[in-house]
Computed example of a mutant assay.
Amino acid sequence: MRRFIASALALAAVVSAAAPAQADTRFLSYNASDRITQALTKGVTLEVRRGLFGAVQVEKLYSTSARGTAGFTRGGPDAARRALPPGAEENDIYGVDQDGDGRGLARALCPGSDEVWLIMSRVRAPRPLTMQAVGRWSDGAYRHCVTLTYEWRGEWATAPLTRNTPD
């Protein structure tokens, strides 16, 4: 029994020491794959953080054409998922931060809404990506705004250059 406990503690120490080394940031780039997506965003690069066991969390979105960025907050209300169109399978929800260029992205995707969430398919290279924009209006209703579809473009070593904008 002592040998088992000692082995388990040693394994836990190795895993906890390796955790920071395994987590990393990646920049995954996508091109718009339909006319609606092209009209709204053209293409995007996502800054993603990959955790120890491969889980991916989206941190930021960089616009390919406008050189703007928008931050994301992971999570959101279940009512936003319920507003998705029938057959939508996206499940990872992110709130669009309203500071900087995030406000402009939210207005472009869901004009007139008070808050906007992007509900994404699983982010994995080299697979396509689908994002569903859902907004909450002043009357409290959640409405689906637009479906954005992207084709894989590539992975970058660093973030794209962005323009400096006042907050």
Rank of each mutant, 00 (worst) to 15 (best):
R35G: 02
T69S: 06
D24K: 15
F53P: 01
G43H: 02
S16T: 15
Q38M: 04
Y62I: 01
V14G: 05
R3H: 07
V48M: 03
V58M: 11
S65T: 11
V14L: 13
V48W: 03
V44K: 01
L11A: 13
V56S: 04
L28R: 10
G43E: 01
S16K: 00
V14Y: 06
F27M: 03
L52V: 11
G43C: 02
A10I: 13
A70H: 08
V44F: 02
Y30Q: 06
G71P: 08
D34V: 07
S7R: 08
Q57A: 15
Q22H: 07
L46N: 11
G51N: 12
T73D: 11
E59V: 14
A6N: 10
V58C: 04
A6Y: 08
L61M: 15
F53S: 08
T69N: 06
G43N: 05
A66T: 11
A70L: 07
Q38H: 10
A13M: 14
L28A: 05
R49S: 14
Q22K: 10
T45H: 05
S33R: 14
I5W: 08
A39E: 15
T64W: 01
A8R: 10
P20R: 11
G68E: 15
R67Q: 14
S63H: 05
K60S: 05
A66Q: 06
V48I: 13
A70S: 10
A39T: 14
T64R: 07
A17T: 14
T37P: 00
L40W: 03
A6T: 13
G68C: 04
R26F: 06
A32T: 04
F72T: 03
R50D: 02
A6K: 08
R35Q: 13
A66C: 01
A21V: 09
I36Q: 14
A18K: 04
V48C: 01
Y62H: 12
T41C: 04
A19P: 00
D24P: 00
A55Y: 10
A18F: 09
A19G: 00
K42L: 00
F27H: 14
T69A: 06
A66Y: 08
N31Q: 05
N31V: 02
I36L: 09
Y62R: 06
G54H: 15
T64G: 00
Q22R: 08
G43M: 00
E59Q: 15
S29K: 11
L9Y: 08
T25C: 01
N31L: 03
L11Y: 07
A17Q: 09
S65Y: 07
A10D: 12
S7V: 12
F72C: 04
A32K: 03
T73H: 07
S65P: 00
G54Y: 15
A17D: 09
Q57M: 05
R50F: 01
G54W: 15
A6P: 04
V56Y: 03
V44D: 02
F4T: 14
V56A: 05
L46M: 10
P20H: 13
A8E: 08
F27W: 10
I5D: 02
A21I: 11
L28S: 01
S7A: 15
